[in-house]
Nucleic acid binder design. Structure first.
Length: 580
RNA sequence: GCACCCAUAGCUCAGCUGGAUAGAGCGUUGCCCUCCGAAGGCAAAGGCCGCACGUUCGAAUCGUGCUGGGUGCGCCA
């Protein structure tokens, strides 16, 4: 249930009635009519812009429309007051039982409170992480993993049918480098000195791969040329790397539905088929690209290449799909992969990329638009980098020394819950500071703690109440006499709870899970505020001498807890019941 | 040179796809524990929403042009 949607429906209905009565012209478009919480609570509970939006098309002054609408809305028992304000806003105040009803609804729905059918069961594919299978995941991958996972949770909660997918880049030159690096470790496992030449991966994590190769092949591959072992070791090492990556993801609580392989696209005709489809649309041609202006590469020479006409879909230049030696560029299998997703009948695609892939967005969207004939929208979220700090100082990591910070390091130092929450406290396209000390601090400076603390307080109330002999099961609380929640401070919290279903929809529509984290912080703040007011006004304490009154107040607290748990569930953070 | 992202309080950031007097946290100043967890709360001060035009009833939000910062720009993925 979304109260704002309900009231909007009521407004639309009232407008239609006015039309039927001849008080408004027919044929108006109500699409832009909105019902939202006013910025200033003094203006009421909900405001609609209906009169201002319709004034021009209706040829009527906005205030006249607003007044007619107000009179009509007052006939509904839910509307306690409807006042025209400013240029033609209609401010509505809702009757207290509405807000008390929200508390009951939250307790009744439990973890399902706020679930929406906005997505209408549409199939959405969220591709994220897709780290190269050449080593453990490092800190740069963490944010993308968390945002993708939380977004998938959010969309599922908002009524989409979600597939989480990882694209394994196991078809390029980097997995050959992996194979050669692993081969040296294989030699090392036989007591030989490994030759980790420039350009190979020096990391220790390949030592176990060398051991495993020795266990599998014995000394059969020693002193053999690459042609004898490259393909086999490549597959073997890639699989071990993917196993490691899966474990890394699991340590963060991230789960994938599908792992798709780039390599598996080769030799199946899938790449050729995707390119052929573009060719049929006259979007593939052989041509020579202009050198980039301003900064011409030193070894630039004009070269004829097979190109994709991405400029037809708004890209800056056409993009090569074949290298000069005739092999595919990275882009070609990626086209085929996205074509594959389109043919798997997804209604919507989402890619989570690192910000350094920004230049790739237009061509990818162009390819998907062409291949799906504009049927399947592709949204690409670019994730800005995370800057690590410790004690307020930048936390240096040196790839050269092999001491780069891995995902595991982060999870071990900060914990999966804290890491996930903090990664969601910024919009995706803004850089994020991650301070190992601050994120573990137990103060309101730390949003994770602050939200968890609010939930812990709710549980504390429940424990105390149970000790006092009050039945605190959700069923009983939902049946409490909620009319006793009559204080403005209590109603204010109920109003915040009422915003949750609406927030879920906004966050899902914009693909922005960080909004959930910010909302939870605000909700927690409301609970802390109400709690402290109990210090001065005994009537606002949750536990009262009168059990019936207590039940109503505890129901409110519990409803806050329900929403915090639901929200944390979307973020993939475990709610704690007690701080320690 | 071009494309994309960012610019909001001293600092770090929200801001509902265009709404009313732009909001939080930190920091500063002053308050609040006989009382469910003060690991908290309340209040004050602090803003040409980078700049300039434009669109309209109405712009931090949309458009154009600037300024500053970041990312990227054929045979890496």
């Amino acid at each position: 249930m979304n109260l704002f949607a309900d009231i909007r429906a009521l407004v639309i209905e009232a407008l239609s009635t006015l039309q039927a009565e001849g008080a408004l012209p027919v044929g108006l478009d109500f699409a832009n009519v909105a019902v939202e919480p006013p910025r200033d609570a003094a203006h009421g509970d909900m405001a609609t812009n209906a009169a201002m939006v319709l004034a021009k098309p209706a040829g009527m002054p906005p205030r006249a429309i607003a007044e007619a609408l107000a009179a009509r809305l007052m006939a509904d028992p839910r509307i306690e007051a409807a006042d025209v304000a400013g240029p033609g806003f209609l401010n509505m105040r809702l009757a207290a039982p509405i807000w008390q009803g929200i508390v009951r609804a939250a307790l009744t729905a439990g973890a399902e409170f706020g679930r929406s059918d906005l997505g209408a069961g549409q199939k959405v594919n969220v591709e994220f992480v897709s780290a190269n299978p050449t080593g453990p995941m490092h800190v740069g991958h963490v944010r993308g993993a968390v945002v993708g996972d939380a977004l998938a949770n959010l969309l599922a909660f908002a009524g989409w049918q979600v597939t989480r997918e990882y694209y394994i880049n196991d078809g390029g030159a980097q997995v050959d480098v992996l194979a050669r690096s692993a081969y040296e470790r294989y030699r090392e496992a036989h007591g030989l000195e490994p030759e980790i030449r420039e350009g190979l991966y020096p990391g220790d994590y390949l030592i176990p791969v060398g051991e495993a190769l020795k266990a599998k092949y014995g000394d059969n591959l020693l002193d053999k040329g690459e042609q004898f072992w490259l393909a086999e070791i490549r597959d073997f090492a890639t699989q071990m790397m993917m196993q490691m990556i899966r474990e890394d993801l699991a340590s963060l609580g991230v789960r994938m539905d599908i792992y798709s392989s780039e390599k598996a696209l080769y030799g199946t005709g899938k790449i050729e088929a995707a390119i052929q489809r573009l060719r049929d649309l006259d979007l593939i041609y052989d041509g020579i690209l202009e050198p980039p202006k301003g900064k011409t590469p030193e070894d630039w020479e004009p070269r004829e290449q097979t190109l994709f006409r991405s400029t037809a879909y708004g890209d800056d230049v056409d993009r090569p799909i074949k290298k000069s030696d005739g092999s595919w560029t990275y882009f070609a299998p990626d086209i085929a992969y996205h074509y594959d997703k389109v043919t798997r009948d997804f209604d919507q695609l989402i890619d989570i990329f690192g910000a350094d892939h920004g230049g790739y967005v237009k061509r990818m969207k162009a390819a998907v638009a062409a291949l799906s004939e504009n049927r399947v929208p592709l949204d690409i979220k670019l994730i800005q980098l995370v800057k690590l700090f410790k004690n307020g100082e930048p936390f240096k990591m040196s790839k050269r020394a092999g001491t780069f910070v891995t995902l595991r390091d982060v999870v071990e130092m900060a914990g999966a819950d804290v890491t996930r929450f903090i990664m969601l406290t910024r919009k995706n396209d803004v850089a994020l500071d991650f301070d190992f000390d601050k994120v573990l601090e137990q103060s309101k400076d730390n949003p994770v703690f602050y939200v968890q603390y609010a939930n812990a307080r709710v549980n504390s109330i429940l424990r105390k109440a149970a000790e006092a002999g009050i039945d605190v099961s959700d069923v009983t609380l939902a049946g409490a006499d909620l009319a006793r929640l009559d204080h403005a401070a209590e109603i204010a919290v109920a109003k915040k709870i009422a915003e949750w279903p609406r927030l879920v929809e906004i966050a899902a529509r914009t693909n922005e899970p960080h909004r959930v984290a910010f909302y939870l912080y605000e909700l927690a703040s409301d609970l802390h505020g109400l709690w402290n007011r109990g210090n001065e006004e005994a009537a606002l304490r949750f536990i009262q001498d009168d059990h019936a009154t207590s039940a109503a107040k505890i129901a409110l607290a519990r409803a806050v807890g329900v929403v915090i748990c639901a929200g944390l569930g979307i973020l993939g953070v475990t709610p704690v019941e007690e701080m320690r």
